[in-house]
Design a binder for these strands. Sequence first.
DNA 1: TTGATTGCAAAATGTTTGCATAATG
DNA 2: CATTATGCAAACATTTTGCAATCAA
Lengths: 154, 154
Amino acid sequence: MEKTDTTIQKVKQKIYKAGYKLTSQREDILRVLLDNEHLSAEEIYLKVKSENSGIGLATVYRTLELLSELNIINKIAFQDGISRYDVNDNDRQHQHHYLLCLNCGKIDEVEKDMLIDVEKEVEKSYHFKIKDHRLTFHGLCKKCIEEADDQNKG
Amino acid sequence: MEKTDTTIQKVKQKIYKAGYKLTSQREDILRVLLDNEHLSAEEIYLKVKSENSGIGLATVYRTLELLSELNIINKIAFQDGISRYDVNDNDRQHQHHYLLCLNCGKIDEVEKDMLIDVEKEVEKSYHFKIKDHRLTFHGLCKKCIEEADDQNKG
DNA sequence: TTGATTGCAAAATGTTTGCATAATG
DNA sequence: CATTATGCAAACATTTTGCAATCAA
């Protein structure tokens, strides 16, 4: 059995236990979410539609809300006003980080947490109980740095 | 001369040097931004309007874009789909961090950077040149933790 | 004086909602 | 069979744009 299938089974169980119904649309959306990273609702809608035509955008939004509520996915907002969604990795306690290239717009990911000490300090200094975090670095990706270097050299 | 006035003079100079005109609307918006933190465009619009009636929301958006472009303010996006804006502190190289309470919605700020070592590691591992970052912690603020504790005690 | 800026209204974008129909458990 | 979920269209909220009038330099 593929890893994706195992995950789908687990998630379906979670949905079922929470008292919701298992519909083909929910499974389709979940599959797309598992196969991709930081997709927008529109992108998910188009992908599901291309594989299995006949889904509504409203269903995508409603499903994304449901999956967020069940903590199966995370909603992330960059500065462009579009929400994106990532499946929550169960092996990971926290949301990973993002590298947003200001030049080409590419979004990369940083898997390593690296914030454990920072969080400890924040919790202590501010009496704030941290549940999760969102961290995005803005800058230049490897490719764009290299292209800029090439141009400088002539 | 007040600190705010000094800052306004500096920013006006920056706008002027960039070839833009100094209008009363721009100054009004700037003043509101300096007196407040993480306001939305709508909130800025209402504040300016209440002091000096006769500004358009479109002007607010256009000015916010201009000020962002000149690196005078930062646009931040939480998960609610509304963009907020903060004046860039010149003494600080990087955007500060936010503490978003999941219970009451309050947004606090963490002034200390604390990410210097993390950034060094990211730059090295990913060949990514970091220009800025956005970090928000999601959790429970002091007040909400205390209220939850009180309820548990009876 | 002239080109940038404004305010208004209209349009565009992303998301949510109401409701009749369809599907799940 | 009773709900829950869906798809569509309409509503909504935020942001952007076109354009004539206004203002700063």
